[in-house]
Measured scan of single mutants.
Amino acid sequence: NITNLCPFDEVFNATRFASVYAWNRKRISNCVADYSVLYNLAPFFTFKCYGVSPTKLNDLCFTNVYADSFVIRGDEVRQIAPGQTGNIADYNYKLPDDFTGCVIAWNSNKLDSKVSGNYNYLYRLFRKSNLKPFERDISTEIYQAGNKPCNGVAGFNCYFPLRSYSFRPTYGVGHQPYRVVVLSFELLHAPATVCGPKKST
């Protein structure tokens, strides 16, 4: 009989979030998941669920729940959905087409922007091929755009693959930082360890 609440607040209220290319994953298990708490945590810009209804979450049980978190800019949030393409979905964080879970995003301009520009958040701009779903690539190998090998040196047709967002508070919403948490629900042929409040007794 599990009584402890799932530590969603640790994920959502973390002081620092990860850069999207090096997104963070927390496995959540053996706890009571009260998803209604999430609705009250922040004024969400996005709370979209796929393959599951957000209002039914509190009635369900899962084997595992994974919470992935990272920062992107406002106009990239739409890429965090099944079947999307674009720089983020292709080279940084890719959801599977049959994704079961929820994408939660909110504006973090007050936390993640600086007047002089916050350069701490990076994204991958160049990659030889698209990522597979939930693949994480943290390599910093020089990207070869031409025929000549780069031998690890940046220059003509040889690019450092990561680029930094420079978040400034005066930017338009599309270029402001957004914190994203992706909850993916895993149903294996194994005992369910993460249940809503109704199912945990």
Rank of each mutant, 00 (worst) to 15 (best):
E135G: 07
R27F: 08
S116H: 14
A42R: 13
Q79G: 02
A33H: 06
P7F: 07
G172V: 14
K26D: 04
P54F: 15
K114M: 11
K48G: 01
T15F: 02
E186G: 08
T3F: 05
G172W: 13
F44I: 13
K26I: 10
Y165N: 05
N147K: 13
K48C: 06
A33K: 05
D59G: 10
N4P: 06
T55S: 15
S36C: 05
N58A: 12
V37R: 13
C49T: 00
S36L: 05
A22I: 02
P54H: 11
H189V: 10
V32K: 10
P149K: 13
S53H: 13
R179L: 04
K110C: 07
A145M: 12
P191V: 07
Y159D: 10
T46H: 15
S166G: 14
P197A: 15
D75W: 02
I72N: 01
Y165T: 06
C158T: 04
Q79F: 04
T140I: 08
V173F: 11
Y121L: 10
P191W: 02
F62T: 09
I28V: 07
G86I: 06
G172Q: 14
R27L: 10
D9A: 13
P96D: 02
I142P: 11
P43M: 06
F12T: 03
L187M: 14
A192L: 12
K56E: 12
K56C: 07
S200M: 14
R179F: 04
L188D: 15
N64T: 11
F185I: 06
F8K: 02
Q79Y: 04
T140R: 10
L60E: 09
K128L: 07
N87L: 13
V32Y: 11
N87H: 15
L111T: 14
Y178V: 11
A105Y: 11
C61V: 10
S53I: 07
K128N: 11
Q84P: 02
P191N: 15
Q79I: 00
T140F: 07
V71T: 06
N58F: 07
N109E: 11
V182K: 00
N30D: 11
V71N: 01
N107C: 06
R163T: 09
T15K: 13
F45I: 12
A14S: 09
F45W: 12
R179E: 04
G83V: 04
S166L: 08
A22D: 12
T3M: 08
S184E: 04
K199E: 13
S166C: 09
A67S: 02
F17K: 02
W23T: 03
Y123R: 12
D34S: 06
S29R: 09
G117Q: 11
L5D: 09
K198Y: 12
V32S: 11
F126E: 10
H175P: 06
N64M: 10
G83S: 08
G146A: 08
Y39A: 15
L131P: 03
Q144D: 07
L38C: 03
P96N: 03
L122F: 15
I142W: 08
Y119Q: 15
D137N: 07
P7K: 13
N58M: 09
I138M: 12
N120R: 13
F185A: 03
N157L: 09
I80H: 02
P197C: 15
L187E: 09
P149D: 13
V115K: 15
Y143D: 08
C31I: 04
Y93A: 02
L5A: 13
V77D: 01
P7A: 11
G196C: 09
D137G: 03
T140S: 11
K94S: 06
R179T: 03
G146W: 04
L162A: 04
Y121A: 05
S36A: 10
A145L: 09
S19V: 01
T201H: 14
C31K: 04
Q176L: 02
V11R: 02
Y21N: 05
F99Y: 02
N13A: 05
R168D: 15
S108D: 06
G83L: 08
H175S: 15
P7Y: 07
